[in-house]
């Protein structure tokens, strides 16, 4: 579980995050949604420690990340996995080497054991056949799956996904979403997904946090969205005709 308490972040004189209070539960896919520029990426970067907040508390299962020593942070980071928007695979390494990289850095297992573990993670994302290929030789969806395999190889307790579906077709997005949800349940991880893909929201949004202009505007589940009176949330989620129709059908369903 990750708790964010009274988090503020500003760049020079611009307040980007204002008094964010939220709890991300484990075993669930927690989604952060919001328009571009609303501050969701900054929130994610503050949570993972790539940015330092101006004020607030960040508790990883009661451990305050912001008051930790460098060494403690280093150890906590080994419990984290992250899937970046661009997949962030190492170009000079093959798919297998990419997945093995965290093990090579932190595990004392033998080479054979490390290989076996990396291969089992690749098998989990159905990519065993691409193990010898380089990131430049595989598709965007496959790169994301390699990134997922790399992020779970050390069996983390916390998984962060920054727009995991960006640049992917709807079908591949669905595969990635389902994979993230399955892994979250399998390892009982605290998963935070930063997205503005409404298919993901409707598909795997077990807990949704809507950020608007740097503050938490709304919090709930995917089912709560249909009945929420929040205008800003409705304007954002049901901006497209397709989702407007989905909402109308869902409301009729609830009333009926």
């Amino acid at each position: 579980m990750i708790e964010v308490k009274g988090l503020y972040k500003s760049f020079e004189d611009k307040d980007v995050l204002k008094d964010i209070n939220v709890t991300f539960e484990n075993g669930k896919t927690n989604l952060i949604i919001g328009q571009s520029g609303s501050g969701k990426t900054v929130l994610m970067k503050c949570i993972v420690g790539l940015l330092t907040p101006n004020k607030g508390e960040l508790l990883y299962d009661t451990r305050n990340f912001l008051t930790m020593s460098k060494n403690e942070k280093k150890h906590l980071r080994r419990e984290m996995g992250m899937i970046f928007q661009s997949a962030a695979l190492f170009d000079s390494m093959s798919v297998l080497e990419n997945v093995m990289f965290p093990l090579n850095m932190f595990s004392n297992d033998t080479l054979r054991d490390r290989q076996r573990r990396a291969l089992s993670c690749l098998e989990r994302v159905n990519l065993t056949e691409a193990k010898d290929k380089f990131p430049g030789e595989i598709s965007g969806g496959m790169q994301k799956r390699v990134a997922i395999a790399r992020s779970i190889v050390l069996q983390p307790q916390y998984l962060f996904c920054d727009e995991p579906n960006s640049g992917l077709d709807p079908k591949t997005s669905l595969v990635i979403d389902e994979l993230i949800q399955d892994i979250t349940r399998e390892y009982n991880m605290t998963t935070i997904i930063n997205t503005h893909d409404m298919n993901s929201v409707m598909g795997i949004g077990e807990k949704i946090i809507f950020i608007f202009d740097g503050h938490k505007e709304w919090e709930g589940t995917k089912d709560d969205i249909f009945t929420s009176p929040n205008t800003r949330l409705n304007n954002f989620v049901f901006a497209s005709d397709l989702f407007q129709k989905v909402k109308e059908a869902e409301v009729q369903n609830i009333e009926g």
Partner: peptide, 11 residues
């Protein structure tokens, strides 16, 4: 391409 951020996150 965020490869440096990925290293940072890994500790």
């Amino acid at each position: 391409t965020q490869q440096i951020d990925a290293l940072e996150i890994m500790g």
